[in-house]
């Protein structure tokens, strides 16, 4: 298992690179290494299709929005009639390119944070919180144990009410939602009771779980640190879309930094959750 704190270091470095400069090439490379990380090293049972679809939609949406709203730039590829609100006017290649790069920034930042949730067990992430946060972390972690049961209960209630003559619809929604909500709240109060009955609340706590830090974790964390150091020392070349497009360029430091972000794929095995 990768150590959550090492993953967090990697994510932070990725964020700095992806959001710090509007260089299309660093953003692209960061997005690709994020994609490789989550694609090859996600935990079992995670489905990525939804997230990836969302990212594609957000990327396209940002680009489209900028084309329609920002009418500046020299290379006009279409002129919309002026009576159209907001969008009416010239549509330019510059606006399209800028929108694509802005959207790529969004995609890249998302992909750098994504490993925290898809490559680690959520509860392990809570355990990795620093000591003073343990009390709340324990409560949140406990509540995560309820989530699958509540989701299953909702489906079971829907089935059973259907057999009692319930039919889906807006007015009959309460017949499923109310029992589901109330049962979930009751279960959670029971969980609170169980925690209290085992001495939870007030006073200092210690932690049983230990998350070992291996040389692989050190490798990833040092790589992340080095990547940030490199780009801060030699920032990637600036890229301008307006008033005229400039070709994107990348310096050696930027390239090296992005390559360092690929380290997790080489150093960490796929975290297999115990069956």
């Amino acid at each position: 298992m990768p150590n959550p704190r090492a993953v967090a270091a990697w994510s932070l470095a990725g964020l700095v690179l992806a959001a710090g400069w509007s260089n299309p090439l660093t953003r692209l490379l960061v997005a690709l290494s994020g994609l490789a990380f989550v694609g090859l090293r996600h935990r079992r049972g995670v489905r990525l299709r939804g997230v990836l679809f969302f990212l594609a939609a957000a990327w396209a949406g940002t680009a489209l929005l900028n084309v329609l709203l920002s009418h500046l730039g020299n290379d006009v590829f279409l002129t919309l009639p002026g009576w159209l609100p907001l969008a009416g006017g010239t549509l330019t290649l510059e606006a399209l390119a800028y929108g694509l790069v802005a959207g790529l920034g969004l995609v890249a930042t998302v992909l750098t944070v994504l490993p925290l949730s898809v490559c680690l067990e959520p509860q392990d992430l809570l355990v990795a919180l620093p000591g003073p946060l343990h009390r709340t972390g324990a409560a949140l972690s406990a509540s995560l144990n309820l989530v699958p049961g509540i989701a299953r209960g909702y489906l079971a209630i829907q089935e059973a009410q259907r057999m009692r003559g319930w039919r889906p619809g807006l007015r009959s929604l309460p017949e499923v939602m109310i029992p589901a909500l109330l049962t979930a709240m009751e279960d959670s109060i029971q969980l609170a009771e169980a925690m209290e009955a085992r001495g939870y609340g007030g006073g200092p706590r210690t932690s049983y779980a230990s998350q070992p830090w291996t040389w692989r974790d050190s490798g990833v964390a040092l790589g992340a640190l080095a990547a940030v150091g490199l780009v801060l020392a030699q920032p990637p070349p600036t890229w301008l879309a307006y008033p005229a497009l400039t070709p994107p360029a990348l310096n050696l430091a930027g390239l090296a930094a992005c390559l360092l972000l690929l380290l997790p794929v080489f150093l960490w095995r796929s975290p297999a959750s115990a069956a």
Partner: peptide, 10 residues
């Protein structure tokens, strides 16, 4: 209730 008294992942 076996479903609502365990608090840890492992």
């Amino acid at each position: 209730n076996p479903e609502a008294q365990l608090v840890s992942p492992v």
